[in-house]
Design a protein around this nucleic acid. Structure first.
Lengths: 86, 86
DNA sequence: TAAAAATACTCCATAGGTATTTTAT
DNA sequence: ATAAAATACCTATGGAGTATTTTTA
């Protein structure tokens, strides 16, 4: 049930974009957001899940095992969603 | 991508509750919301989808064909989501 | 006529933007 | 040195609540 008022789908979309683009700035562009917004979205997501999804430095990023698993779930859910909202 | 800033998952959860409970007030209780919030959530959802999901009067409600279809999609997505966030 | 739903209005928390700082190559 | 990420600060708005009105069995 709601009350978990954060926008979980937006977070999943941004996370997927980060994974696919390989950087926060590129993901932000793809999502038409600022890098700041993308960064904060991922941080919030990790806090909510209580898990690190991406190991990142200013120059490189790598998915954690949980990140890889969560990315697969995201793809699945987002494609189902696309169908549902079509 | 975001910018569709509405909380689509919350809407799906509320919609599912309405279907399962058979009324907006009961669904609101189940979701720990006011009937007002539930009503507005479904209205927003229908507007966003551009489809009527529920034919409703003050005394009865019935799913449209689209509503039935969308409900099935919701169940599927929400249970996948539960797994993803677990 | 009494319940459930819809709505007008108000308020606040989430999440986005800008500007700046930090970090790593 | 520079480009990317993080963060501090500010702001806007989506969405929740309350109070009220509308609806229909």
């Amino acid at each position: 049930m709601p009350q978990s008022s954060t926008n979980r789908l937006a977070a999943m979309e941004i996370f997927s974009a980060v994974v696919e683009q390989g950087s926060f700035s590129a993901a932000a562009r793809a999502c038409r957001l600022t890098p700041s917004a993308a960064s904060k979205a991922i941080t919030r997501l990790e806090q909510r899940l209580g898990t690190k999804l991406i190991h990142r430095s200013t120059r490189q990023m790598q998915l954690t095992a949980e990140g890889r698993w969560f990315y697969e779930r995201c793809r699945h859910i987002l494609s189902d969603l696309e169908e549902a909202e079509r």
